[in-house]
Design a protein around this nucleic acid. Structure first.
Lengths: 326, 326
DNA sequence: GCTTTTTATACTCATATTGAGCATATAGCG
DNA sequence: CGCTATATGCTCAATATGAGTATAAAAAGC
C-alpha cells in the first residue's frame, strides 16, 4: 500500500483585546517536530477517519482538548498539502495534509496549566499593522535589496511591481486583503525565518538573512496570514465583527475592533455614519460611562439587517487605507 | 492501523459560451460508485501521496487525463469531508475527502472519444438564473409547503425567514453570492434529488419528492453551487472575468459574461460607464463588425489596473439584483 | 432605396454616498 | 475653573449610482 495520508485540522482562533487582534497559540508537546517546543503553533490535531463525522466536529474537539476553549463562529479557510510542508514527511513518514479553519471568539482566559496563550497577531506579521508608526522600518530596504538582487532586469521589474502592489506603493494604496500575497512575497525574498528553516539544513542556514516578526511552527504563519486576509475581506460584506464583540458595545469599541483587524485607522464620524446608515446596529438606550470623556451609548447588533441589506458588513473606505499607505 | 484516508481532487471547470455559464462534466467509468454512469460528475481523481508535490499539480494532471483540457486560472474552493458523502465509505471502504478547485477557461472542444461534455450550469441549478422568466415556477410553492410542514410555529418562522433571505423576497433583494445557502436550503427541504439518494435505500425513496434541476454524482452539485457563489463574490473585487474572455472583446461581450455568471441582467449604459471609470479595459482601436447593429470597438484588459485600484472588479449594482428579484 | 431592427455610444439629471472637516456636548481630573 | 478626552450632530464639496434620452452605424426585410 502507498504512503498513508494524515489529515490535520488546524485552527486560527482570533479575538480582539485592547485594540489588538490576538491569536491563540499552543506550545506543542508532540514528538516528531524538528522545531523546538518554544516556537508557537496553532492548535491542531488529526482527523480520526473512524469516529469524526465532520471536519468541523473534529476541529472543535481538538480545540477543546488543547486549549479548553469553546469556540462559536467557525469557517473553513484553506487546505495546505504541499509535500514537505512538515519535516515529518521527509523522514519517510506519512503525507501531512492540513485543513485550516478560522474561529472568532471573545478573548477568554486560558485555564491554569494549559500550555496555550493569546498573542498579538502583529507580532508574527508586524508589517500588517498600519495604524501607527510601528511597522518594521528596515522592511522596505530589505525588499529593495531583494529586487536589486534579481538575476535579470525583467525579473527585477517584476519584483518591484509585486512589492509596489503588495505594500501599497501604487495609487491603489494599501489593501489589507492581500495579507497572504505579502507573506508569500517575503517568504520568497527570504525575509521569513521559516523559508530558511525548511529548505536548508540547520548548519548551512544563511546568517545574513533576517526575519521580520516572530516565527511559528511549520507553515502556521502562512496559515495566520491566510486567516487575516480572509477576515479583512469578509468584514466588508458579512457582519463578522460582532462575533468578536460583547452583545452590547459602544460605537468606538466597534470601530477599534474593525481597525485592529483591518490594521488601519478610520475617520470616526464617518464610521458611525456608515454603521448607522447600514442599520447594522441599534441603540439600547443605556449608556456606558466610567472612563474619561463623555459617556457613550451602548449598541447591539441588528440581526434583521440580514433581511434588509445585501452583503451587510463594514465597508472600509478605500481612502483610509490609502492614507495609511503614506 | 485505522481506516485510511483517500484525498480526491475535484475540479469545477467553468467557461461562458453563448451567454451561458458552462461546466465541464465527465461520465465516470470508475467502479465502486452506486450512482449510474449516466449521472454527470466533475473531473476528479485521488492525490498520489508519493509523487504529487502539490494539490494543484495533481488536479491539473487529473484534468488533463480525464478531459484532455489544459486549464489556466485555478483556485482552491473548499474541502468536503463529511462522513458518508461517498457511498463507498459505507461499504467499509476508506474515508473519502475531496478538495474542490475552481478553474476558469475559454470553452474548448473536447477531443473525440473523451467522455467529457460541456453543460449549462443552470441545468443543475436552475433557480440561480434570474435573467429571464425561466426559473422553476413550482419552486416557490414547494418552499412554501416545506415551511408550512414545519413541526412547530417557531421552526416555521425560521424556515420562512431563511427562504425569504435566500431567494431575495426581502428588501435586501437577490444575492447571487448565496448560491450555496440556497442549495443547502433546498437540500434540507428535500427538493434536491441527492438528498434522498444518499440517505434512503433505493427501494424506500419517496416518489412524491421532486428535484429541481439535473442531478450530479455524490455531492458534486453542492460543489458546483459553492463554485458559483465564489465566482459571483470574487467577480466584484478581482478581474476574474477576463479569464473567460478572449484577449480582445466588445463591451457587450464582457457584460454578457458577467451577466451569465451573476445570473442577473445589467443596465448597459451604466455597465460601460462602470468599466470605463474603473479603467478595467482599454480600447484597441480596431472594430468588430459582422453581426447586426453598429460595429463595436474591441477592448482588452488593462493589467495595470492592479496597480491603480483596490479590489479591481466588476462591482455589480445592487439595484439590478433587486430588480431581478421581482 | 427606404424602412425596420439591432447594437453602440454619448450625454443628462436627480439622488445617494463618501471624504474631510467644524462645532458642540458631557464626562473626569488637577 | 480650565484642560483633556470622548461622543455626537451637522455641513459641504466631490463622486458615484440609477434610470433615462438621444443619436449613430450597421444588417435585414421589402
Amino acid at each position: 500500500m502507498s504512503r498513508p495520508i494524515v489529515l490535520d485540522l488546524s485552527a486560527v482562533i482570533l479575538a480582539v483585546t485592547a485594540d489588538q487582534p490576538r491569536v491563540l497559540t499552543v506550545r506543542r508537546r508532540d514528538a516528531g517536530h524538528s522545531t523546538p517546543d518554544s516556537v508557537p503553533a496553532m492548535p491542531a490535531g488529526p482527523l480520526d477517519p473512524e469516529s469524526d463525522r465532520t471536519l468541523e466536529l473534529a476541529l472543535r474537539r481538538w480545540i477543546r482538548e488543547q486549549t479548553g476553549i469553546e469556540v462559536g463562529y467557525v469557517e473553513q479557510l484553506y487546505t495546505f498539502a504541499d509535500r514537505d510542508r512538515d519535516p515529518r514527511e521527509r523522514s519517510g513518514g506519512s503525507r501531512q495534509v492540513s485543513v485550516a479553519y478560522l474561529a472568532l471568539v471573545h478573548e477568554q482566559a486560558v485555564a491554569a496549566g494549559v500550555p496555550a496563550q493569546w498573542q498579538n497577531c502583529y507580532e508574527f506579521l508586524p508589517w500588517e499593522d498600519r495604524r501607527g508608526a510601528t511597522r518594521p522600518p528596515a522592511l522596505r530596504a530589505a525588499l529593495g535589496a531583494w529586487a536589486t538582487a534579481a538575476p535579470s532586469a525583467a525579473t527585477r521589474r517584476l519584483r518591484e511591481e509585486r512589492c509596489a502592489i503588495c505594500f501599497g506603493l501604487t495609487p491603489a494604496g494599501w489593501d489589507g486583503y492581500l495579507a497572504l500575497e505579502r507573506y508569500e512575497l517575503l517568504y520568497e525574498a527570504q525575509l521569513i525565518g521559516e523559508a530558511r528553516r525548511e529548505s536548508v539544513p540547520r548548519s548551512a542556514r544563511s546568517s545574513r538573512a533576517r526575519d521580520f516578526g516572530l516565527g511559528m511552527q511549520l507553515d502556521h504563519r502562512r496559515i495566520l496570514a491566510t486567516a487575516l486576509g480572509r477576515v479583512r475581506g469578509k468584514l466588508k460584506y458579512r457582519p463578522l465583527v460582532f462575533e468578536l464583540l460583547p452583545t452590547t458595545f459602544t460605537l468606538l469599541q466597534l470601530q477599534r475592533v474593525v481597525e485592529a483587524l483591518a490594521g488601519v485607522r478610520l475617520h470616526k464620524q464617518n464610521f458611525r455614519r456608515l454603521v448607522a446608515a447600514a442599520r447594522l446596529v441599534e441603540g439600547t438606550g443605556s449608556i456606558r460611562s466610567g472612563g474619561p470623556g463623555r459617556p457613550a451609548e451602548l449598541f447591539r447588533f441588528r440581526r434583521e439587517v440580514l433581511r434588509e441589506r445585501q452583503g451587510p458588513g463594514v465597508r472600509l473606505p478605500v481612502a483610509a487605507t490609502r492614507r495609511a499607505a503614506r
